[in-house]
């Protein structure tokens, strides 16, 4: 088994190495990557999108369509986890599973009071950091996704300390379907608004920076909320 794996790996490695070493050197300023479409983004990105952080400009404006479906991908992951049979609750799944469960049940390590205290203490500060990333994303590194990750981290850390069910209760049942779909829905809404304003799907009015920023911010908030809720829910679903 193992020698075959090694052979396979070598077989894959060889063409890949051939492929990458024949690329234009990556640090050179005249590499195609720096003379291609990126030139325009660097030259006119700020004026066209109002974003000083050009990564955000590419993400939300130039290639917003990618990002739309990127958030759809996370939603897909959630739908996937929700659609799967519940591992334990619905059906014990035979003797080996039951045995494994019993074994697991006994080795749960109780949460140390220190950890519990620190997590609860830090949670508000982490939330502030996330908010900062969210609202400063157009001028500094950061943005909706990063904020979502931190939000989710807070949820998960709290979940470890307080138990997943209590964290799950933070989001009311009625809101849950809307919150977990917040990101794609925000994109759809902005796409429609852009369509109305500029005549192009997901278009941003290039001459109106206020509208641009408002729309961008709306998207970031949607991504942060939706992404955070989904990531946290993935954890909760797998835990219970």
């Amino acid at each position: 088994m193992k020698p075959w794996s090694l052979l396979l790996v070598l077989l894959v490695a060889l063409p890949l190495v051939v492929g990458v070493v024949n690329l234009p050197p990556h640090d050179a300023p005249d590499a195609p990557i720096h003379t291609g479409v990126g030139v325009r983004y660097l030259a006119r990105g700020v004026e066209e999108t109002g974003n000083k952080n050009l990564v955000t400009a590419v993400l939300l404006n130039y290639r917003g369509f990618d990002t739309f479906f990127e958030v759809v991908v996370i939603f897909t992951a959630l739908a996937a986890v929700l659609a799967l049979p519940r591992g334990s609750a619905a059906d014990p799944g035979g003797a080996p599973a039951a045995a494994a469960k019993a074994a697991n049940g006994s080795d749960i390590v109780p949460v140390s009071p220190v950890v519990s205290y620190v997590v609860r203490l830090m949670a508000p500060f982490m939330a502030m950091f996330a908010l900062a990333m969210l609202f400063r994303g157009h001028v500094t590194p950061g943005g909706g996704f990063q904020a979502a990750a931190v939000f989710a981290a807070i949820f998960i850390a709290l979940g470890l300390v307080l138990g997943p069910t209590r964290v799950a209760e933070l989001v009311p049942d009625d809101w849950r379907p809307w919150l977990q779909g917040a990101a794609p829905l925000a994109f759809a809404l902005i796409a429609a608004i852009g369509w109305r304003l500029t005549g192009a799907f997901l278009g941003f009015p290039t001459d109106d920076h206020t509208a641009q920023e408002a729309m961008g911010l709306f998207l970031e908030v949607g991504i942060a909320l939706g992404g955070g809720v989904i990531l946290a829910r993935l954890f909760v679903e797998m835990e219970t």
């Binding site: 599973a97 494994a100 996704f145 679903e237």
Partner: peptide
């Protein structure tokens, strides 16, 4: 950034499947 999000999603689904397998077969 997009790639990372995709990777996280794939990992989540894979983990859910592994949990499922573990619950059913115990290994």
């Amino acid at each position: 950034l997009t790639g990372i999000v995709v990777a996280v999603s794939v990992t989540a689904v894979a983990l859910a499947l592994i949990v499922q397998i573990h619950a059913h077969f115990g290994t």
